[in-house]
C-alpha cells in the first residue's frame, strides 16, 4: 500500500514547550490509522499538523516536513484552503452549522464555487449516502440540522466533510461524545469509507482503535513510541511502555 502522507522529523513547540519530538510516521492510503496515547501526549497536535490546523495557534513553531502525495504541505506558497479541501477534518463535538441539513452539506461546495442546483442536489444526496445518513434524513433535508441527534449530527459533519471530495479525513475523537450505538455506526461508516479515503483518527477508546484501525501509533509525551499494524500493536507490542499503556498499567 502506498504512503499518502509522510511526516519526517516533525517537531512542534507551543512557546517553549515541545509538544512533538522528531516524529517520523507514514500514513498509508485507503486505510485507517489510529493515534492513541494518554492526554497531552501529542496525538491531537500531530493530527492537526496534517492539514495545518495548528497554524492558528499563537506562539507555535513547527520544524520538519509533512509530505502529502509527494509535496511538502509546509512549503512556502501552499494554499491552506486547497490543502484543507483535500484533507478534511471532523471534531470531537458534532458542530453542524445552525442551518438546514441540506445547507450544511452544500456549504463547502458553494464556497468552492458550485452554484448549479442540480449539481448541489447530487452532491448533497451522495455525501449523505456515503455518510450513512441519507435514509434517516431524506424527508427533512430542509429542516434545521440542530434537530438531529448527536450521532446523526456527527454523521452530518462527516457528510459535510465528504461534500468537498477530500482524499484524507482526519477525525479527532469523533465518537467520544456519542452513545455506544451511534459510536458503532460511525465505526462501521469509517470502515466503509476507507475504500475511497485515507483516514486518520485520534481516539481515547483503545477498543475502538483495535476494532477499526489498520495501523496504530502510540504517542507518549510528544514522542511516537511505537507504530505498526494494529494486530501487532495490540497483541504483541514491542515496547514495554506501549504494553503498559494498552493493558491499563499506566495512563
Amino acid at each position: 500500500m502506498e504512503n499518502k502522507i509522510v511526516a519526517k522529523n516533525l517537531n512542534l513547540w507551543y512557546g517553549e514547550k515541545q509538544a512533538l519530538k522528531n516524529i517520523d510516521l507514514d500514513i498509508k492510503e485507503k486505510s485507517i490509522t489510529a493515534f492513541i496515547g494518554p492526554s497531552g501526549c501529542g496525538k491531537s497536535t500531530f493530527l492537526k499538523t496534517l492539514n495545518r490546523m495548528n497554524d492558528y495557534v499563537d506562539n507555535i513553531r513547527i520544524e520538519g516536513d509533512v509530505i502529502l502525495d509527494g509535496e511538502n504541505i509546509y512549503a512556502d506558497g501552499v494554499d491552506t484552503t486547497i490543502l484543507r479541501k483535500k484533507v478534511g477534518m471532523v471534531f470531537q463535538q458534532p458542530n453542524p452549522f445552525p442551518m438546514t441539513i441540506y445547507d450544511n452539506v452544500a456549504y463547502g461546495p458553494r464556497i468552492h464555487g458550485i452554484k448549479d442546483r442540480k449539481t448541489l442536489d447530487k452532491i448533497v444526496e451522495e455525501s449523505l449516502k456515503d455518510a450513512a445518513l441519507y435514509d434517516e434524513v431524506k424527508d427533512r433535508l430542509h429542516t434545521n440540522a440542530l434537530g438531529l441527534s448527536g450521532g446523526q449530527q456527527q454523521r452530518l459533519c462527516i457528510a459535510r466533510c465528504l461534500a468537498v471530495e477530500p482524499e484524507v479525513i482526519l477525525l479527532d475523537e469523533p465518537t467520544s461524545a456519542l452513545d455506544p450505538i451511534s459510536t458503532l455506526k460511525i465505526e462501521e461508516l469509517l470502515m466503509e469509507l476507507k475504500a475511497k479515503y485515507t483516514i486518520a483518527i485520534v481516539t481515547h477508546n483503545m477498543q475502538q482503535a483495535s476494532r477499526i484501525a489498520d495501523y496504530t501509533a502510540f504517542f507518549l509525551i510528544g514522542e511516537m513510541i511505537e507504530y505498526g499494524k494494529t494486530d501487532d500493536l495490540f497483541s504483541r507490542p514491542q515496547d514495554e511502555r506501549t504494553e503498559n499503556y494498552i493493558t491499563g498499567r499506566f495512563g
Binding site: 483503545m206 477498543q207 483495535s210 495490540f234 497483541s235 504483541r236 507490542p237 504494553e243 494498552i246 493493558t247
Partner: peptide, 9 residues
C-alpha cells in the same frame, strides 16, 4: 476486562 497483549495471552 477485554484483556489485550500479554494479558490476553
Amino acid at each position: 476486562q477485554q484483556p489485550i497483549a500479554r494479558d490476553l495471552r
